[in-house]
């Protein structure tokens, strides 16, 4: 029973202190395909993080509404119903390790489930399971989260969100500040979680490599509007359009374009990973 997220003519303003940023989301309408991994890309300040926040009720639309499953978020939604929505929609913020607070890793991961009303024993079970899902050993359950390494902290923080067993998980640049190996590992973990449980993932990223490798759908945002929402492959076909949106190409695709320009040989399809590139080169008989 995957949950559907639907935005209809959503406009939102962002207010921090006395500063008001008007229309960070400008009349956005979209339907998120349930059970798929969707990447959100776009230049800084395009409204990517706001899009995530609006899906979780952290940013309330000033116009339009968001439908999540059978619930609706608009300017009149109460705190309590936001909480029920948040139970089903997990959100991982940028640098989530800065939210860790408890004395032990176990307590910190159980914080979410306990807030959402599960009892102590079940919360501990969930914490164990979540820790396993992010590939960490159970022995750190009793350690202080502040004693862990940066990468471990990040995973504990993500486990803290997975533990609530959300239907949808929203991630704001989950791999920022990680080394390439850590980045790949984290995304592989998330993909495994998605494959096993069939849940929806929406993640913001600047990295086209991870978009090409892990996402099935892409949302491109520009100045608070959604300018593209479709599968990954067609996005990387139109290079001129990409340049206009100031988006990069994945390495394999860049190689393919360079190769085609120099050799005059046209590869049969758009290649997003080295593997696809290799296969395509073998297919046309170049190797």
């Amino acid at each position: 029973m995957a949950m559907q997220i639907k935005l209809e003519h959503v406009t939102a303003n962002y207010k921090i202190g006395p500063l008001l940023k008007p229309r960070v989301l400008d009349d956005v309408s979209l339907t998120l395909n349930p059970g798929r991994i969707t990447a959100v890309v776009g230049s800084t300040g395009a409204g990517k993080s706001s899009l995530l926040k609006v899906c979780n009720g952290l940013l309330i639309p000033s116009e339009g509404h968001v439908t999540i499953g059978s619930k609706e978020i608009n300017s009149k939604t109460s705190k309590q119903s936001l909480k029920t929505i948040r139970k089903h929609i997990g959100m991982v913020f940028q640098f989530p390790e800065s939210q860790l607070f408890a004395e032990t890793v176990g307590e910190d991961i159980a914080f979410g489930p306990l807030n959402f009303g599960t009892d102590q024993r079940r919360a501990e079970q969930l914490a164990r399971k979540a820790l396993q899902q992010v590939g960490l050993d159970e022995s750190i359950l009793s350690k202080s989260p502040f004693s862990l390494s940066g990468g471990q902290k990040r995973r504990v923080a993500i486990a803290g969100v997975l533990a609530s067993e959300p239907e949808v998980i929203l991630l704001d640049e989950p791999t920022a500040g990680l080394d390439p190996a850590g980045r790949k590992e984290l995304l592989t973990l998330l993909k495994r979680w998605h494959d096993e449980e069939g849940k929806t993932i929406l993640f913001v990223t600047h990295d086209m490599e991870s978009t090409a490798r892990f996402a099935e759908d892409v949302i491109v945002m520009e100045n608070g509007s959604v300018v593209y929402h479709d599968a990954v492959r067609p996005l990387f076909e139109n290079t001129r359009q990409l340049k206009e949106w100031q988006l990069d190409l994945p390495e394999a695709r860049r190689f393919q374009l360079g190769f085609e320009a120099q050799s005059g040989i046209h590869l049969p399809h758009v290649c997003l990973t080295e593997k696809e590139l290799m296969d395509a080169l073998i297919e046309v008989g170049c190797v």
């Binding site: 909480k83 948040r86 939210q99 914080f111 969100v161």
Partner: peptide, 11 residues
């Protein structure tokens, strides 16, 4: 931090 904790169900 408040946003992050609210997302984990803190009120």
């Amino acid at each position: 931090v408040m946003d992050a904790q609210s997302a984990r169900g803190a009120v």
